[in-house]
C-alpha cells in the first residue's frame, strides 16, 4: 500500500509517492501561485507513471503550515477531500518540520512584511515552538553551528531548500494522525485579525 506526501505551503509544489518504507517517486517543482492549477494533474501523472491506482493509496501526509496562506490551503483542501470523502487516512506535519527533516536546523520561511516563520528542530523534534519573528529578531539567532534552511536571501546568504521529498519518509514516526479530518484547518500563526477592515 502507498502513501502520498503533499506540500504546497511555500514556493514549491511537492508531491511524493511512498510505500511503507521508501520514497518511490516524487516531484518538487517551483511554481509559486500556480500550485492550484498543477496539483491534481501532477498527482494523476505521478500515480500513472508508477502504475499505482488511487485505490492502492491508503494514506496522505500533508503539511499544515505555517506558510503562504493560499498555498497551505491548496494542499490541505486536496488532503481533506481525499480523507473525508474518498476515505484515505490523513497525517500532518508542520511545514517547518518537513523542511528541517532530521537535521539540527533553523528553518526560515518568508512571512512577508519583514518577518519569517521560524522553526527550530533537531531530529524532527521542535526545540522551540513554530513562530513568526521579525527579520531583525532572527538575525540575532543566526549561527553557523546549526544548519540554516529556507529563505536565507533575506539575511544576505544563499537560500537553501533541501530535497524535501526524502524528509517525508525520514519523519514518518512523527506524522500526526488526524482523527476528525473535517475540522482540520491550517496553522497560520498570524491571526486573520490583521486582515480586517480598520
Amino acid at each position: 500500500m502507498y502513501t502520498i506526501g503533499i506540500d504546497t505551503s511555500h514556493q514549491f509544489l511537492l508531491l511524493v509517492l511512498m510505500d511503507d518504507d521508501k520514497v518511490i517517486d516524487g516531484i518538487q517543482k517551483e511554481c509559486p501561485k500556480l500550485q492550484s492549477e498543477h496539483i491534481v494533474l501532477e498527482l494523476d501523472e505521478l500515480l500513472k507513471k508508477n502504475n499505482v491506482l488511487l485505490k492502492e493509496v491508503k494514506s496522505v501526509v500533508v503539511t499544515i503550515g505555517p506558510g503562504s496562506y493560499t498555498g497551505v490551503r491548496i494542499g490541505l483542501t486536496v488532503a481533506k477531500i481525499l480523507g473525508s470523502i474518498v476515505g484515505k487516512k490523513v497525517y500532518t506535519l508542520s511545514t517547518l518540520q518537513l523542511y528541517a527533516g532530521v537535521d539540527n536546523a533553523l528553518v526560515l520561511l518568508d512571512a512577508r512584511a519583514g518577518r519569517c516563520y521560524v522553526g527550530r528542530y533537531n531530529k524532527g523534534v521542535a526545540i522551540r515552538e513554530d513562530s513568526v519573528l521579525t527579520n531583525k529578531e532572527i538575525k540575532e539567532m543566526l549561527n553557523d553551528d546549526i544548519i540554516l534552511i529556507g529563505d536565507l536571501h533575506l539575511f544576505d546568504r544563499e537560500s537553501y531548500y533541501p530535497e524535501i521529498a526524502a524528509n517525508f519518509m525520514l519523519l514518518k514516526e512523527l506524522w500526526q494522525k488526524i482523527e476528525n479530518i473535517d475540522v482540520l484547518s491550517p496553522v497560520y500563526l498570524k491571526s486573520s485579525q490583521e486582515y480586517l477592515r480598520k
Partner: peptide, 25 residues
C-alpha cells in the same frame, strides 16, 4: 466586520468544505 473580508472567507471555506460535501451526499 462590516463586510466580507477575503482572508477570513478563505479560512472559513477550508473549514467547511469537506463536511458540506459529506452532508450533501
Amino acid at each position: 466586520y462590516g463586510g466580507v473580508v477575503p482572508e477570513v472567507a478563505s479560512r472559513i471555506h477550508i473549514e467547511n468544505i469537506s463536511i458540506i460535501i459529506k452532508e450533501t451526499l
